[in-house]
Structures are given as structure tokens and as C-alpha cells.
């Protein structure tokens, strides 16, 4: 389940080992941004914006699977399995001047998933759904804990309403990052070596 290009920053990704290293590296960077946002959120709550932007960039440009960009970016073909949106006329006209051979509709193989890829896509979403859904009870428990602290029925020296709210923010941010990237990461992790022949 890969797009036309099997390279990320010039590094070939046909091997499963290379893709797994990529997934680990991307999540390490995202985790750094999450931790940074959580730390800076104490004084500047808007700090989480950068984490969301970086996550979107990773999902769209590195992992792929995001619809609308038509398989032009990322390692995985778009999940929606629809042809890419036509580009504005001016962009097409410029492309015709620069590279006449690229004229015409994008190759179907760059965006259309075959039966095996569709089943892999669905299985990855099934697994990701369980992970993402399991974060909601955690947020609910933290919110209940926060309510008890705010009402005064639970008093611990180290536990304040602010601490609980920060914990909720941390869990919600991590869950958002996972929700945006996990299905694609699962596919990249499990896909066997690609033989280009």
C-alpha cells in the first residue's frame, strides 16, 4: 500500500526495517513537540498549535493516506480511494510548459487501492480505533478526579485542579496526534518488504 514514490527525503522505503525506523523517528519528533506543548501550555496555552501543524505535516507529507492530495505526497495511497481533485487550470498550464509528458489525469495506480490494500486499510483502522477509543475513558476518569478535587471531596497535597487539567490536556493532545497518524503508521509498520523487481 504505497504511493508511486517509495522515498522519504531521498531515503528508500521499500524495506520494512526502513519504514519501521521512519515510524519510530516520526513519533519521537511528535512526542518531543507534545512534551514541549505540555510544558509551555502552563504559560502559553496556544503552544499546542505547533504540535498539531507538525502532526498534520507528518500525516500528509510523510505517512500519506490523507485524501485530497491524490497520492502526490506520502508513502501510502489516499484512504478514501477517490481520484484526486483536479488542479486549477493555471497550475496545469504551467506544468504543461515545464513537463509536457505529465499532462493528463494522474495515473490510477497512484491513488486507487486494490482489494488487498483496502483490507489492510480497514484492518489498520480497526486496530487504531481501539487505541484512540481507549483514551476517552482516561479523559473521563481524569475529569471525574478533577471534579472531586474542585468539590473538595478529594484532598491531596500534590493533586490540584490545575494538575488534573494539565493531565487532561496532555492525554487529549497525545490522543489527537495518534488519531491523525496511527492507521498509516500501523500500515507502514506491518507492510512487508516491497519488491520492485
Amino acid at each position: 500500500m504505497t504511493a508511486a514514490s517509495y522515498k522519504v527525503f531521498g531515503i528508500p522505503m521499500e524495506q520494512q526495517r526502513a519504514r519501521r525506523k521512519l515510524v519510530v523517528a516520526v513519533y519521537a519528533v511528535l512526542l518531543m513537540f507534545c512534551v514541549g506543548s505540555i510544558v509551555f501550555a502552563r504559560t502559553a496555552p496556544i503552544a499546542y498549535n505547533w504540535t498539531i501543524y507538525v502532526t498534520m505535516a507528518a500525516a500528509m507529507l510523510v505517512f500519506g493516506g490523507v485524501g485530497g492530495v491524490g497520492g502526490r505526497y506520502g508513502l501510502i495511497k489516499p484512504f478514501p480511494n477517490k481520484p484526486p481533485r483536479p488542479e486549477p487550470v493555471m497550475v496545469d498550464a504551467i506544468r504543461l510548459q515545464l513537463a509536457p509528458m505529465t499532462a493528463g489525469t494522474p495515473d490510477e495506480s497512484s491513488w486507487k487501492n486494490d482489494e488487498r490494500e483496502l483490507s489492510r486499510r480497514d484492518r489498520a483502522h480497526y486496530q487504531a480505533y481501539q487505541v484512540v477509543a481507549s483514551a476517552f475513558p482516561v479523559v473521563l476518569l481524569l475529569a471525574a478526579l478533577g471534579l472531586k478535587v474542585a468539590q473538595g471531596s478529594l484532598q491531596l497535597a500534590w493533586l490540584t485542579t490545575t494538575t488534573v487539567l494539565q493531565s487532561i490536556f496532555a492525554v487529549a493532545l497525545l490522543e489527537t496526534v495518534l488519531a491523525m497518524t496511527l492507521p498509516a503508521a500501523i500500515i507502514l509498520w506491518n507492510e512487508p518488504d516491497i519488491d520492485l523487481g
Binding site: S119, D122, H125, A128, Y129, A179
Partner: peptide, 16 residues
């Protein structure tokens, strides 16, 4: 299994 997975894919999109 295919139906289950497809339902979760659809649910994931709706949930987003």
C-alpha cells in the same frame, strides 16, 4: 472480519 474492519474504518472517519 472484513465487515468489522470496514465498519471501523467508516466509524473512524465519522468520529474524526
Amino acid at each position: 472480519r472484513g465487515q468489522r474492519d470496514m465498519a471501523h474504518y467508516t466509524a473512524y472517519r465519522i468520529l474524526r
